[in-house]
Simulated scan of single mutants.
Amino acid sequence: MTEIRAREVDPHERDADARPDRRIVDPATRPLEVAAETFGHILPDEPPPLVRHRPRPVTTLVVFAVTLASVGLIVSWFGPWGGGFGILGVLVGVVAHVRQRARRAWCVASYVIGAVSVLYSAYWVWWILDELSKLTPPA
């Protein structure tokens, strides 16, 4: 068997011509230089480490959009007036999503809540128009 020799290398005293692909990093100790002739290419091209991106912020504008859409939903339970708030909530959510790159989940929440409030308001309008059509004078 072949004898393997490794020597500790101080990063400050490292040779300028040493290739970084011949280095094995042991987390418990210092880096070790290994003879490339003995092992061949030990460390293949490693993919770059995963970079964790910071989450997008919850901006004031997107909170305002969700609040408007929620007010529209609550008001639309009692009458057709909540549809306007719902539409405003959706529009402000779109602006927050496009211009400020706010969190997508909050923007989607404003879209969904605003759309539901518009649907409730549309139901109220349909119901009111149906009731008004029944009030025709007798001929």
Rank of each mutant, 00 (worst) to 15 (best):
L43H: 12
D21P: 00
P20N: 06
D26A: 05
I42M: 14
I42T: 15
A36T: 09
L32W: 10
H41F: 00
P27A: 12
R22G: 10
E37T: 12
F39Q: 03
V34K: 00
D17R: 07
A18R: 10
R30I: 09
R30A: 15
R23P: 00
D26M: 11
H41A: 13
R23K: 07
D21C: 07
R23Q: 06
A18M: 14
R19F: 04
P20D: 11
A16K: 05
E37H: 07
T38N: 07
A16N: 03
A28F: 04
A28L: 12
P44M: 03
G40E: 02
V34E: 00
D17V: 09
L43C: 12
A18Y: 08
D17A: 12
R30N: 15
L43W: 04
E37Q: 14
A35E: 13
R22F: 01
V25E: 12
D26N: 11
H41C: 02
P20L: 12
R22P: 01
D26Y: 03
A16L: 06
P27Y: 07
R22D: 15
A28C: 04
A16V: 06
A28P: 00
D26S: 05
P44W: 01
E33G: 03
P27G: 14
R19I: 06
E37W: 02
P20S: 11
D21L: 09
L43R: 15
R23H: 02
D21V: 11
A36G: 04
H41I: 06
G40V: 01
A35I: 00
L43K: 14
G40T: 03
I42R: 12
H41M: 05
R23L: 14
E37N: 08
A35H: 09
E33F: 10
V25R: 11
E33W: 09
T29E: 08
A35W: 01
P20H: 08
